[in-house]
Design a protein around this nucleic acid. Sequence first.
DNA 1: TAGTGGTCTAGACCACCAA
DNA 2: TGGTGGTCTAGACCACTAC
Lengths: 255, 255
Amino acid sequence: MTGIAPLFSADHQRGTGPLYLQLHRQIADAIRRGDLAPGASLPPEREMAAMAGLSRVTVRKAVEGLVQEGLVIQKRGSGTFVAPRVERMEQVLSVLTSLTEDMTRRGREVRSLWLSRCLDDPAPEECARLGLDTRSRVARLERVRISEGLPLAVEHTAIPAAFLPDPTQVDGSLYAVLGKAGLRPVRAVQRISAESVGPAEAGLLQVAPGSAGLRIERIAWLSSGQAVEFTRSLYRGDAYDFAVDLKLSTERDET
Amino acid sequence: MTGIAPLFSADHQRGTGPLYLQLHRQIADAIRRGDLAPGASLPPEREMAAMAGLSRVTVRKAVEGLVQEGLVIQKRGSGTFVAPRVERMEQVLSVLTSLTEDMTRRGREVRSLWLSRCLDDPAPEECARLGLDTRSRVARLERVRISEGLPLAVEHTAIPAAFLPDPTQVDGSLYAVLGKAGLRPVRAVQRISAESVGPAEAGLLQVAPGSAGLRIERIAWLSSGQAVEFTRSLYRGDAYDFAVDLKLSTERDET
DNA sequence: TAGTGGTCTAGACCACCAA
DNA sequence: TGGTGGTCTAGACCACTAC
């Protein structure tokens, strides 16, 4: 018993709106209040349904929302549990650095699960971003970034093959490999937006399909002005955030 | 008829995995290929179910995913439509500016739908971020930011009441009002992460509950070092992105 | 008024996990 | 083996929209 039985008492005040939202709110509040501690298990769906006088489908719809918000985790054959607090990684967006370097600097190990590491024909978008001819080739690096056993991001990187003839050289930090060849980028533009995590990427990131992810696109240039890297990543929304330091550079006064 | 009937032909090759994911993928591909143009209507759910030989519940589960990804929009009593291409707003994260100023500079009008504009006791988090005493007061500004009729973000701002004794002064740009009082911030730190949009905010932003949003937290300081603004916003993931310019400032070489 | 999406039900079978 | 979540069904009623 989890001590939340009163939540589902049949005589509880019915609020307004759909039943699954009412149940959603009750459970979410209980978690945020701390009545349900991280790691605690929720009653089985069939039991919650009986307690609340609802069908299992309705209960599942309520729980589905909690899963998407990252409040609970469902494990088939096992149960539903209040999600553990994840320690967020933070990256400061001002210095141009690689994920490996950034994490190593703060004493965190980063592993890569390689999905692909090969030479390939460039996609049209890659030609545009990297300023490449359609006949040229790119080194393609696709990997899941994992820190302390927690998947952080799925990364797709394209590098002109001229700069990285042998993609298998890259194991940890891409920038380390490029640096050795005297090809360390000196400038990059990064675009950040939010995107729903699709079924395929959800599996790789070990999150529920439909949960929120951070989409990052980066183009990096050499001092010569040549584009050397085009990377498209999807970060787990609950495990990462980016910090930016803003300064008032234009000294105009408002009127 | 929408011309996608073949998608649902009962004799179509059954792939692997859950039926709702197979249907999801078929419709998503049709949209991305352009077979279903923006604005086009999907067949009614009951009709799709009959065509595909599935129950309506299963069809709804497939469509639910499309809604979350922003590919289609459902209108009760009316139908389901392929989502129009939204023109993304982009904000460059380097100069400290306000949303109003940024949008005005590029010729876009911004309206505010005020949810709250008052003096209030500060929340514990606001005290911490603004360096306030629990006995002091804050001006609280809560609004939905709307551009060209499209809701962009929900914004919650707290300002020490000493700096903004009359919150109703603010109508458009907060920074314009602060600037007039000689209180324009010169530095800010902004944190960006991704978050699932909850039911309440989904209504304000006119997106589906559970879709991806950008969570932005900003703390801004005066030249004196005093914190003047703490803002927590949730941006629509499909209508906004942030761009950052990164430079290699540490000249270390990788070894 | 007819048709749409939104909610809800009762029941079934499956795949997986733990004892 | 028994219990869990994952999928799927057939059918119902409601609220809203368009006509």
